[in-house]
Design a protein around this nucleic acid. Sequence first.
DNA 1: AGCCAGGACAAGT
DNA 2: ACTTGTCATGGC
Length: 268
Amino acid sequence: MIEFAVEMPNFSLELTLFCGQCFRWKRVGDNVYLGYIRDLPVTIKQVGEKLFFSAASGLTQSDIFDYFAFDVDYKSIRAVLSNDRVLFNAIEYAIGIRVLRQSFFETLISFIISQNNNISRIAGIIERLCENFGEDNLDGSSRFPTPETLSSLSVDDLSPIRSGFRAKYILDAARKYQSGAIDETLLRTAPLIDAEKHLMTIMGVGPKVADCVLLFGCERYDAFPRDVWINRAMQSLYPNGLPDFVLPYAGIAQQFLFHYARTSGILK
DNA sequence: AGCCAGGACAAGT
DNA sequence: ACTTGTCATGGC
Protein backbone atom coordinates (compact mmCIF):
# COMPACT_ATOMS: atom_id res chain seq x y z
CA MET A 1 0.00 0.00 0.00
CA ILE A 2 1.41 3.38 -0.99
CA GLU A 3 -0.08 6.79 -0.29
CA PHE A 4 1.16 10.21 -1.30
CA ALA A 5 -0.04 13.64 -2.34
CA VAL A 6 1.12 15.97 -5.09
CA GLU A 7 0.17 19.39 -6.35
CA MET A 8 -0.63 19.54 -10.05
CA PRO A 9 -1.79 22.85 -11.48
CA ASN A 10 -4.06 22.92 -14.53
CA PHE A 11 -5.01 19.29 -14.21
CA SER A 12 -8.47 17.78 -13.89
CA LEU A 13 -9.02 14.15 -12.97
CA GLU A 14 -12.67 14.44 -13.97
CA LEU A 15 -11.86 15.70 -17.47
CA THR A 16 -8.90 13.40 -18.00
CA LEU A 17 -10.60 10.22 -16.84
CA PHE A 18 -13.96 10.84 -18.52
CA CYS A 19 -13.09 12.45 -21.83
CA GLY A 20 -13.44 9.07 -23.54
CA GLN A 21 -9.81 7.93 -23.69
CA CYS A 22 -10.12 5.25 -20.99
CA PHE A 23 -13.00 3.10 -19.80
CA ARG A 24 -12.16 1.48 -16.47
CA TRP A 25 -12.27 4.43 -14.05
CA LYS A 26 -15.27 5.01 -11.79
CA ARG A 27 -16.45 7.86 -9.62
CA VAL A 28 -16.73 6.43 -6.12
CA GLY A 29 -17.29 9.62 -4.15
CA ASP A 30 -17.06 13.37 -4.24
CA ASN A 31 -14.01 13.97 -6.48
CA VAL A 32 -12.83 10.45 -5.68
CA TYR A 33 -12.01 8.00 -8.46
CA LEU A 34 -11.15 4.31 -8.53
CA GLY A 35 -9.33 2.73 -11.43
CA TYR A 36 -6.30 0.73 -12.53
CA ILE A 37 -2.72 1.56 -13.36
CA ARG A 38 -0.60 -1.33 -14.61
CA ASP A 39 -3.72 -3.35 -13.81
CA LEU A 40 -3.47 -2.60 -10.09
CA PRO A 41 -6.21 -0.73 -8.22
CA VAL A 42 -5.66 2.96 -7.50
CA THR A 43 -7.84 5.46 -5.66
CA ILE A 44 -7.36 9.18 -6.28
CA LYS A 45 -9.01 12.20 -4.73
CA GLN A 46 -8.68 15.69 -6.13
CA VAL A 47 -9.09 18.76 -3.94
CA GLY A 48 -8.35 21.89 -5.88
CA GLU A 49 -4.89 21.43 -7.34
CA LYS A 50 -3.99 18.70 -4.88
CA LEU A 51 -4.11 15.01 -5.72
CA PHE A 52 -4.18 12.29 -3.08
CA PHE A 53 -3.13 8.89 -4.33
CA SER A 54 -3.70 5.55 -2.65
CA ALA A 55 -2.57 2.43 -4.44
CA ALA A 56 -1.89 -1.26 -4.01
CA SER A 57 1.61 -2.28 -3.13
CA GLY A 58 3.44 -3.21 -6.28
CA LEU A 59 2.83 0.23 -7.73
CA THR A 60 5.36 3.03 -7.37
CA GLN A 61 4.89 6.75 -7.51
CA SER A 62 6.82 6.68 -10.75
CA ASP A 63 4.33 4.20 -12.28
CA ILE A 64 1.52 6.59 -11.46
CA PHE A 65 3.32 9.67 -12.77
CA ASP A 66 4.10 7.79 -15.95
CA TYR A 67 0.43 6.83 -16.44
CA PHE A 68 -0.68 10.44 -16.18
CA ALA A 69 2.30 11.55 -18.29
CA PHE A 70 3.20 14.15 -15.71
CA ASP A 71 6.63 14.36 -17.34
CA VAL A 72 5.07 15.83 -20.49
CA ASP A 73 5.18 19.62 -20.55
CA TYR A 74 1.54 20.50 -21.18
CA LYS A 75 2.14 24.14 -20.38
CA SER A 76 4.35 24.43 -23.46
CA ILE A 77 2.05 22.34 -25.64
CA ARG A 78 -0.98 24.41 -24.65
CA ALA A 79 0.99 27.57 -25.36
CA VAL A 80 1.69 26.40 -28.92
CA LEU A 81 -1.87 25.25 -29.57
CA SER A 82 -3.32 28.46 -28.13
CA ASN A 83 -1.92 30.41 -31.06
CA ASP A 84 -4.99 29.15 -32.89
CA ARG A 85 -8.10 31.08 -31.84
CA VAL A 86 -10.49 28.11 -31.77
CA LEU A 87 -8.03 26.00 -29.80
CA PHE A 88 -7.44 28.87 -27.43
CA ASN A 89 -11.13 28.74 -26.55
CA ALA A 90 -11.26 24.94 -26.41
CA ILE A 91 -8.24 24.83 -24.08
CA GLU A 92 -9.68 27.51 -21.86
CA TYR A 93 -12.87 25.43 -21.70
CA ALA A 94 -11.13 22.14 -20.85
CA ILE A 95 -7.65 23.02 -19.69
CA GLY A 96 -7.27 20.07 -17.29
CA ILE A 97 -7.23 17.31 -19.93
CA ARG A 98 -4.10 15.19 -20.37
CA VAL A 99 -3.56 12.23 -22.67
CA LEU A 100 -2.80 9.18 -20.53
CA ARG A 101 -0.10 6.58 -21.17
CA GLN A 102 -2.14 3.41 -21.29
CA SER A 103 -1.13 -0.13 -22.05
CA PHE A 104 -1.01 -0.78 -25.77
CA PHE A 105 -2.94 -4.04 -25.74
CA GLU A 106 -5.72 -2.77 -23.51
CA THR A 107 -6.05 0.34 -25.68
CA LEU A 108 -6.20 -1.73 -28.83
CA ILE A 109 -8.95 -4.02 -27.56
CA SER A 110 -10.87 -1.18 -25.89
CA PHE A 111 -11.09 0.93 -29.03
CA ILE A 112 -12.05 -2.03 -31.18
CA ILE A 113 -14.96 -2.43 -28.75
CA SER A 114 -15.70 1.29 -29.04
CA GLN A 115 -16.77 1.19 -32.69
CA ASN A 116 -20.39 2.13 -33.30
CA ASN A 117 -20.96 1.96 -29.55
CA ASN A 118 -21.67 4.30 -26.65
CA ILE A 119 -19.29 5.02 -23.81
CA SER A 120 -21.33 3.47 -21.01
CA ARG A 121 -21.79 0.23 -22.88
CA ILE A 122 -18.13 0.16 -23.91
CA ALA A 123 -17.22 0.35 -20.22
CA GLY A 124 -19.66 -2.48 -19.43
CA ILE A 125 -18.24 -4.78 -22.10
CA ILE A 126 -14.68 -4.13 -20.94
CA GLU A 127 -15.66 -4.75 -17.33
CA ARG A 128 -17.21 -8.12 -18.26
CA LEU A 129 -14.13 -8.92 -20.36
CA CYS A 130 -11.89 -8.39 -17.33
CA GLU A 131 -14.16 -10.22 -14.90
CA ASN A 132 -14.52 -13.24 -17.16
CA PHE A 133 -11.01 -13.56 -18.58
CA GLY A 134 -8.62 -11.47 -16.49
CA GLU A 135 -6.53 -12.69 -13.57
CA ASP A 136 -7.59 -11.70 -10.07
CA ASN A 137 -5.66 -9.18 -8.02
CA LEU A 138 -5.16 -9.75 -4.30
CA ASP A 139 -8.15 -7.56 -3.47
CA GLY A 140 -10.35 -9.53 -5.86
CA SER A 141 -10.35 -6.91 -8.61
CA SER A 142 -9.77 -8.09 -12.16
CA ARG A 143 -6.85 -7.40 -14.42
CA PHE A 144 -7.22 -6.83 -18.16
CA PRO A 145 -6.95 -10.19 -19.95
CA THR A 146 -3.55 -11.06 -21.40
CA PRO A 147 -3.02 -11.40 -25.16
CA GLU A 148 -2.21 -15.06 -24.53
CA THR A 149 -5.53 -15.72 -22.81
CA LEU A 150 -7.65 -13.80 -25.31
CA SER A 151 -5.97 -15.32 -28.34
CA SER A 152 -6.90 -18.80 -27.14
CA LEU A 153 -10.64 -18.04 -26.97
CA SER A 154 -13.44 -18.49 -29.52
CA VAL A 155 -16.30 -16.18 -30.46
CA ASP A 156 -18.63 -18.36 -28.40
CA ASP A 157 -16.34 -18.06 -25.37
CA LEU A 158 -16.77 -14.28 -25.59
CA SER A 159 -20.58 -14.40 -25.54
CA PRO A 160 -20.83 -13.45 -21.83
CA ILE A 161 -19.31 -10.03 -22.51
CA ARG A 162 -22.06 -9.25 -25.08
CA SER A 163 -19.76 -7.41 -27.47
CA GLY A 164 -21.89 -8.36 -30.48
CA PHE A 165 -20.25 -8.34 -33.89
CA ARG A 166 -17.01 -7.05 -32.34
CA ALA A 167 -16.11 -10.42 -30.77
CA LYS A 168 -14.37 -11.69 -33.90
CA TYR A 169 -12.43 -8.43 -34.12
CA ILE A 170 -11.22 -8.77 -30.52
CA LEU A 171 -9.93 -12.26 -31.25
CA ASP A 172 -8.20 -11.26 -34.47
CA ALA A 173 -6.45 -8.41 -32.65
CA ALA A 174 -5.36 -10.65 -29.78
CA ARG A 175 -4.06 -13.33 -32.14
CA LYS A 176 -2.17 -10.92 -34.36
CA TYR A 177 -0.60 -9.25 -31.33
CA GLN A 178 0.22 -12.54 -29.62
CA SER A 179 1.83 -13.93 -32.77
CA GLY A 180 4.09 -10.91 -33.14
CA ALA A 181 2.43 -9.83 -36.39
CA ILE A 182 1.86 -6.39 -34.86
CA ASP A 183 5.13 -4.54 -34.37
CA GLU A 184 4.79 -2.05 -31.52
CA THR A 185 8.12 -0.43 -32.29
CA LEU A 186 6.97 0.27 -35.82
CA LEU A 187 3.77 1.81 -34.46
CA ARG A 188 5.73 4.16 -32.23
CA THR A 189 8.37 5.23 -34.74
CA ALA A 190 7.16 4.81 -38.33
CA PRO A 191 5.56 7.64 -40.30
CA LEU A 192 1.95 8.09 -39.19
CA ILE A 193 0.51 6.73 -42.44
CA ASP A 194 2.56 3.54 -42.18
CA ALA A 195 1.66 3.05 -38.51
CA GLU A 196 -2.04 3.44 -39.37
CA LYS A 197 -1.79 0.94 -42.22
CA HIS A 198 0.00 -1.53 -39.99
CA LEU A 199 -2.76 -1.38 -37.38
CA MET A 200 -5.47 -1.62 -40.02
CA THR A 201 -4.24 -5.09 -40.95
CA ILE A 202 -6.26 -6.10 -37.88
CA MET A 203 -9.87 -6.97 -38.61
CA GLY A 204 -12.12 -4.32 -37.10
CA VAL A 205 -9.46 -1.61 -37.04
CA GLY A 206 -10.20 1.22 -39.45
CA PRO A 207 -8.77 4.76 -39.60
CA LYS A 208 -10.53 6.05 -36.49
CA VAL A 209 -9.71 3.14 -34.20
CA ALA A 210 -6.14 3.08 -35.52
CA ASP A 211 -5.64 6.74 -34.64
CA CYS A 212 -7.12 6.23 -31.16
CA VAL A 213 -4.75 3.33 -30.51
CA LEU A 214 -1.78 5.35 -31.75
CA LEU A 215 -2.70 8.40 -29.71
CA PHE A 216 -3.76 6.70 -26.49
CA GLY A 217 -1.61 3.55 -26.59
CA CYS A 218 1.55 4.53 -28.50
CA GLU A 219 2.26 8.12 -27.46
CA ARG A 220 1.59 9.28 -31.00
CA TYR A 221 0.49 12.86 -30.39
CA ASP A 222 0.39 13.42 -34.15
CA ALA A 223 -2.48 10.93 -34.57
CA PHE A 224 -5.85 12.67 -35.01
CA PRO A 225 -8.87 10.39 -34.50
CA ARG A 226 -11.87 11.52 -36.54
CA ASP A 227 -15.18 10.52 -35.03
CA VAL A 228 -18.62 11.95 -35.65
CA TRP A 229 -18.08 14.80 -33.19
CA ILE A 230 -14.71 15.81 -34.55
CA ASN A 231 -16.01 15.69 -38.10
CA ARG A 232 -18.85 18.01 -37.11
CA ALA A 233 -16.43 20.32 -35.32
CA MET A 234 -14.00 20.35 -38.23
CA GLN A 235 -16.71 21.25 -40.74
CA SER A 236 -17.80 24.31 -38.87
CA LEU A 237 -14.58 25.35 -37.12
CA TYR A 238 -11.81 24.27 -39.55
CA PRO A 239 -13.24 24.07 -43.08
CA ASN A 240 -9.65 24.32 -44.40
CA GLY A 241 -8.15 21.83 -41.96
CA LEU A 242 -5.93 22.32 -38.93
CA PRO A 243 -3.11 24.86 -39.10
CA ASP A 244 0.30 23.25 -39.75
CA PHE A 245 1.80 24.23 -36.41
CA VAL A 246 -0.87 22.14 -34.66
CA LEU A 247 -0.06 18.91 -36.52
CA PRO A 248 2.70 17.53 -34.22
CA TYR A 249 0.18 17.78 -31.37
CA ALA A 250 -2.99 17.20 -33.37
CA GLY A 251 -4.03 14.38 -31.06
CA ILE A 252 -3.83 16.52 -27.96
CA ALA A 253 -5.67 19.28 -29.80
CA GLN A 254 -8.26 16.66 -30.71
CA GLN A 255 -8.92 15.91 -27.04
CA PHE A 256 -9.61 19.56 -26.29
CA LEU A 257 -11.78 19.92 -29.40
CA PHE A 258 -13.66 16.67 -28.75
CA HIS A 259 -14.68 17.74 -25.27
CA TYR A 260 -15.39 21.31 -26.38
CA ALA A 261 -17.55 20.17 -29.31
CA ARG A 262 -19.49 17.61 -27.30
CA THR A 263 -20.28 19.60 -24.18
CA SER A 264 -20.00 23.35 -24.77
CA GLY A 265 -22.91 23.67 -27.19
CA ILE A 266 -20.80 25.65 -29.64
CA LEU A 267 -21.96 23.53 -32.59
CA LYS A 268 -25.65 24.13 -32.02
C1' DA B 1 -40.63 3.11 -29.42
C1' DG B 2 -37.17 4.45 -31.91
C1' DC B 3 -32.76 6.63 -32.58
C1' DC B 4 -28.08 6.53 -32.06
C1' DA B 5 -23.59 5.26 -30.29
C1' DG B 6 -15.68 8.05 -30.13
C1' DG B 7 -17.02 2.66 -37.13
C1' DA B 8 -15.67 -0.98 -40.13
C1' DC B 9 -16.64 -4.15 -43.74
C1' DA B 10 -18.47 -5.90 -47.97
C1' DA B 11 -20.78 -5.24 -51.97
C1' DG B 12 -22.15 -2.24 -55.25
C1' DT B 13 -21.39 1.82 -58.34
C1' DA C 1 -11.97 5.92 -55.20
C1' DC C 2 -16.79 7.11 -53.18
C1' DT C 3 -21.66 5.33 -51.52
C1' DT C 4 -24.76 2.30 -49.11
C1' DG C 5 -26.66 -1.45 -46.20
C1' DT C 6 -25.41 -4.28 -42.46
C1' DC C 7 -23.54 -5.61 -38.33
C1' DA C 8 -25.23 -6.85 -32.02
C1' DT C 9 -26.50 -4.59 -28.22
C1' DG C 10 -28.45 -1.49 -25.10
C1' DG C 11 -28.46 3.56 -23.19
C1' DC C 12 -31.23 7.31 -23.35
